[in-house]
Design a protein around this nucleic acid. Sequence first.
DNA 1: TGATGATTGGCATATTATACCAGTTCGAGG
DNA 2: CCTCGAACTGGTATAATATGCCAATCATCA
Lengths: 154, 154
Amino acid sequence: MDKIDAKIVQALQEDGRLTNQDLAEKIGLSPSPCLRRVRNLEKAGIIKAYSATIDQKACGYPITCFVRIRLSIHTEDTIQKFEKIVEETPEILDCYLMAGGSDYQLRVVTGSLDEYEQLVRQTFQKLPGISSVETSFAYGVVKKSRVLPVKINT
Amino acid sequence: MDKIDAKIVQALQEDGRLTNQDLAEKIGLSPSPCLRRVRNLEKAGIIKAYSATIDQKACGYPITCFVRIRLSIHTEDTIQKFEKIVEETPEILDCYLMAGGSDYQLRVVTGSLDEYEQLVRQTFQKLPGISSVETSFAYGVVKKSRVLPVKINT
DNA sequence: TGATGATTGGCATATTATACCAGTTCGAGG
DNA sequence: CCTCGAACTGGTATAATATGCCAATCATCA
């Protein structure tokens, strides 16, 4: 991850559909070595994926909420069942295991409060071993960045 | 947003660099109308951007944390100064305004706990009108989806 | 049924990606 | 200081892809 790689990563985060030619020009390199660097970053797993960012409302999911879930039973079985449901539920976008306690924090999208209630009932309340479910609704977005900063190693 | 558009949006979330030909084949359409639909979705703002997803660790930011910040003073000036700093700080990736109280929730990346401490000191503790800063560290990621589900309208 | 507007598929051209080659730079070791 | 070797760079030819245009098809409504 030298200076040029950092520029490439930065540029592709800002626009993932940049043509190789435009990218090369932007970072000050000719197309050939530029493409090779991109492929290397992909192979190395530094560039993990490309994706389109979609308008949530247009997809029918105007509401974002954060859910903190605490497990009371911490057997392998309970954890696996929980994480399986997380994985299978498309409205659950992110799930982090939080330090200090056995808390999960989820980011969930939903079309309405009713739908959210349905979701919670159909997923978590069926599971054994959940001790609490706390939901915080977001009513505004101040920032939503797709661009991670990049540190230069070499 | 008919069935075909939904398929397009789905596919481009999963792979934002799909060629138009592959996309067309995947959704069962010929390239021409497929491209036109994609362009329309872009113009309509439904597809908002394309971007590469990057490995956090490789960029030097292995730690993710969530920060809840409460303002004690709610003047326009305080809010604007706060949101300006949020906007200008690249380590702050997301910032949501939360319902019930004047809380913000941030998603922040950092290279180490020391760096995090520096960040908090240099940004929030300088600002007037902040009544509390609560940080939760994530020590594991169960799920991180780039694919929002899509509802069909028409 | 007939007319109209939207959508589709195919084609020609312009743009882009990719593999391959030679020239260059940089660093290690003598 | 010189030589060697590896890695990187830039250019080029070819293959793949995007894009604009046209006629054909489909759905809708009178």
